[in-house]
Design a protein around this nucleic acid. Structure first.
Lengths: 258, 258
DNA sequence: CAAAGGCTTTGACCGAAATCAAGGTATCGG
DNA sequence: CCGATACCTTGATTTCGGTCAAAGCCTTTG
């Protein structure tokens, strides 16, 4: 039996796509053991024929940072569930200015059905593990399974809400509010069960200062200065540049511009 | 037979919802004569029982500018197709700062299925005509018709792409680029068949300077100055504050930051 | 027609964030 | 351990867009 890859944890800034090889022996629940718990609808909707197809095309890809995972069907012909880690979706202007337009956390679905012209790059921001499916199988599944499409619609609507919320941040908030909003957003996504009254809270920042700047429409220096200000004001503590402790989420929220 | 309202053209900044009254006699194609051509999937999926329900609940609503059409299910309990005109979707911060997060042109579908907490206001930017359906009917339709859900997924994916494109504009473009991008976007949406080589092109601006500012994350004054600059540089002409003539779309595009 | 009010333009000035420029700090390979 | 490298912080200065203020223009209304 072939080696079974699943949920490998990889070096940051590299996305490796893995598909479990032993689909035949294990059946649907084993195909995607990790995401089965969270993506029952997406993984569970595969039928045996599709699993055979998956087994044939499964392979371990390594994709260089910055290369397109989405928006270019030829590059990487697959859809994935994010099992752990953070994937950043970016768009760039011709002169190199970049904007991160979304962060994908587990258990988000990564891929753009019904491809359109829009070019988005997907890049691993941290160590990322993915469970991938061939594009063709997913698209067939979608045609055959209204339930899958329903789940996808719900995720897409949520992503649309997130995007529009972030538009307010980009268009109307000050640098200080942007950075506070960012920290809150990360805290909530890293631990979705987070109770706003649980203090203190701490987490690892999944992004570099440069990434944060690209997400907030700021420069590295401004991000750094605002983080310093939050630190000297006693709102947060930062250890090793990445580990953030928030004493009072409410205090942070009050600086986020509501 | 009841009076048949359809596709009324209304005063700017007022949304009036209309549902044709004579559904019984006319059947599905008549329910929504105007949008039938463009929204076949959404309107055509209604079954006769639902039409009866529609007839009972149909009425002519007038909604004040700034009041919530979406995000508050109790306020206006319906979904609509935009038949003509432009609807702006806005989000606000607690202190009143506002951001327009999307513009809806015909034949967009207006409404948020599977309501989430996100609060978005919808307001008519110009004279707008709408074809509306009771919320309950649309949600039942969606449960019963995978085709409707498929169409909705496609529109939602397109809106997500638009939102993410605009995030780049908000986060990374200069004021001059933002205004040029806005004019291009309007030109393309008002006439989707627009050939980029057809010059000159002219259209009515659907937004006031204040709205444009709220869409671009700028102030009124900055928008005005940038429009003046485009005018003095000979890129556009503006008559009566609203009628814009673009001599060369390519020249405008070159200022939009790509 | 005249007055009023809303929208737009323009000008002068200001300030938040960008840019430019050093340094400092953590991590990794040898 | 040490040097190299990438990432981060801090300071000085500049600049783009915001703020404040005033005037022009267009439409509405009596």
């Amino acid at each position: 039996m072939a080696d079974a890859y699943l949920a490998d944890t990889l070096d940051p800034r590299t996305i490796v796509m893995t598909v479990r090889q032993d689909v035949h022996s294990a059946g649907i629940p084993v195909l995607c053991q990790s995401c089965e718990a969270r993506h029952r609808g997406i993984c569970g909707a595969l039928d045996p024929d599709q699993l055979v197809g998956l087994a044939k095309t499964s392979s371990k890809h390594t994709v260089e940072p910055g290369s397109e995972l989405m928006g270019d069907a030829e590059t990487v012909d697959s859809y994935s569930n994010v099992l752990s880690g953070v994937v950043k979706l970016t768009k760039s202007l011709s002169d190199g200015r970049q904007q991160i337009v979304a962060l994908q956390f587990a258990p988000d679905f990564l891929g753009r059905p019904f491809k359109v012209e829009s070019v988005i790059n997907a890049e691993a921001a941290t160590a990322v593990s993915l469970c991938s499916f061939p594009r063709a199988s997913v698209e067939r599944m979608m045609r055959e399974s209204p339930d899958l499409e329903h789940r996808l619609l719900k995720q897409t609507l949520n992503e649309l809400d997130d995007a529009r919320d972030w538009m307010v941040t980009l268009g109307r908030k000050t640098a200080a509010e942007k950075v506070a909003s960012f920290l809150l957003m990360i805290a909530r996504n890293i631990d979705p069960t987070l109770d706003p009254n649980t203090n203190p809270t701490s987490f690892e920042l999944p992004l570099t200062r440069a990434d944060i700047a690209d997400f907030l429409g700021l420069t590295i220096e401004t991000v750094s200065r605002q983080l310093t200000r939050l630190r000297t004001d006693g709102v947060i503590r930062i250890d090793n540049n990445r580990h953030v402790t928030v004493d009072s989420l409410a205090r942070l929220a009050s600086r986020s511009g509501a």
